[in-house]
Amino acid sequence: MTETVRKNRRLRPALVGMCLAAALTGISACADSTPSDSGNSKSPGRSSHRNSGAPAAAKPSTPAVAASLRMVENGDHSLAFHVTPGRLPALVLDAGGGEDSSYWKKMAPELAKKTGSMVVTYDRAGMGKSDEVPGAWKVENAVSDLKAGLTKLGITHDVILVSHSQAGEVATYFAKENPNWLTGAVLVDGSIPEFYTDEETAKIEAANKAQVEALKDQPSTRQTRQLLATADGYGPMHRAYHQVSWPQGVPATAIVSEKTPFETPDDAQLWRYAQQEFVKGAPNRDLVTAAKSSHDIAHDRPDVIVTAVGQMLKAAG
């Protein structure tokens, strides 16, 4: 799933697969990522005593310390984790498809300074400073990489995931496998199971078919290899994902962008509906709308994410 490729700008994919056509043709199939005004609204979705209420006041904290790089081995490949020390719960920031840890370069130090929490960002396999792994992208492998990194860092409890876009899939499977590790999660326009109906998945597969073939004719670069890896097996993976449920005991806040990742009204409405249905699944979930924001919420409305994280920390005590 990706955003538009513009001349003389690096590719900034948001939803690899879902918007792959945009990356290959330069025609926007996703909402543009442009800075916008401030503004905040909360949807009428369910709220919980753990997550609702006024924004939490930041705990007193010392000035944020610069993040240190830790290379972690998982099997035959290395992964780059960037750690800013602080208290628990730890905030683990996971970028969307095609993005590495640099996506959070402004938000990570801000969260560290305002909350005093440990902040971790990392590069998934094939991104940033992490090694490439041949073959199709599999969410199970991404979960294994994240778990290996957190284990090596000694962070196996009191974790809050902050997961953007495709990282919502990693978060869902991670939470299902390791619910006791998590204090909660903030899903930032996250890719969630409810969205991937058979009809929607088939539509995405059909839209991507020609573009994938075109991409195969392009020079092989790290970026094109990652796009092809993510597109490989997309349909079966997401039909299986549609059957997965977020664990009831793990609180979650779903932040949905006002524009959504889509320009087509039907797809945009399905995206909103899926987020609403996710929140209705348990009383410890909140739905927040990032007003005047594209899918790129971390850049358009970082304040919404900071507030949601603050509320999650407040609920955790």
Rank of each mutant, 00 (worst) to 15 (best):
P35V: 10
K59F: 01
A290V: 07
L20P: 01
Y103H: 13
R50C: 04
M107R: 10
Y196G: 05
A229F: 07
L69A: 13
K152Q: 15
Q248I: 07
K129M: 07
E169I: 13
R9E: 13
E73H: 08
S36A: 14
V162P: 00
T230Q: 11
H164M: 01
L227S: 05
V143I: 11
H238C: 02
R225I: 00
Y196W: 15
M107I: 07
H295L: 06
G45K: 07
W246I: 04
T121L: 09
L91Y: 03
T62M: 11
A185E: 02
W271T: 05
H238N: 15
A175M: 08
G317K: 14
S293C: 06
L182R: 08
R50N: 02
R239N: 08
N208Q: 14
R12C: 09
G135K: 12
W246M: 11
P60L: 15
E277I: 10
T221V: 06
S52I: 00
E177P: 01
N180F: 02
D37A: 12
N51D: 03
A31S: 15
G53V: 04
N284S: 14
L228R: 08
A58M: 03
D145I: 09
R70D: 02
D37F: 11
Y234L: 14
G26D: 00
Q166E: 06
S101R: 15
V16P: 07
F81A: 13
R9A: 14
M1F: 06
S68C: 01
K113H: 12
A290W: 03
P247R: 11
A175Q: 08
L24F: 11
G126Y: 05
R6S: 10
V120I: 15
A175Y: 07
A229L: 08
K209A: 15
G235Q: 13
L313F: 12
G168D: 04
N178W: 00
D286K: 09
A229H: 07
G96K: 04
M71D: 00
R124Y: 05
S293N: 09
L215M: 14
R10A: 12
L69W: 02
R10N: 05
I27S: 13
M237L: 12
E205R: 15
A14L: 11
R285N: 00
T264D: 14
G53Q: 03
A268D: 01
H49W: 06
T84Q: 15
G86W: 02
H299I: 03
T25R: 11
Q269P: 01
E213H: 12
H299W: 06
A316G: 05
A31F: 06
S52C: 03
K176W: 00
P302E: 04
R87A: 13
E140Y: 03
N51F: 07
G97C: 08
A202K: 11
M107H: 07
D217S: 13
N40Q: 08
V212L: 03
T84K: 12
E277N: 08
Q243E: 12
D296Y: 11
G128T: 02
S43A: 13
C30T: 04
D198R: 11
T84M: 15
G249V: 09
L11S: 14
T156F: 08
A142T: 04
V143M: 09
E132G: 12
I155H: 04
E263I: 12
A57P: 04
A175C: 09
L69F: 00
G154E: 02
V65P: 06
D266C: 01
V83S: 08
W104S: 10
N51A: 09
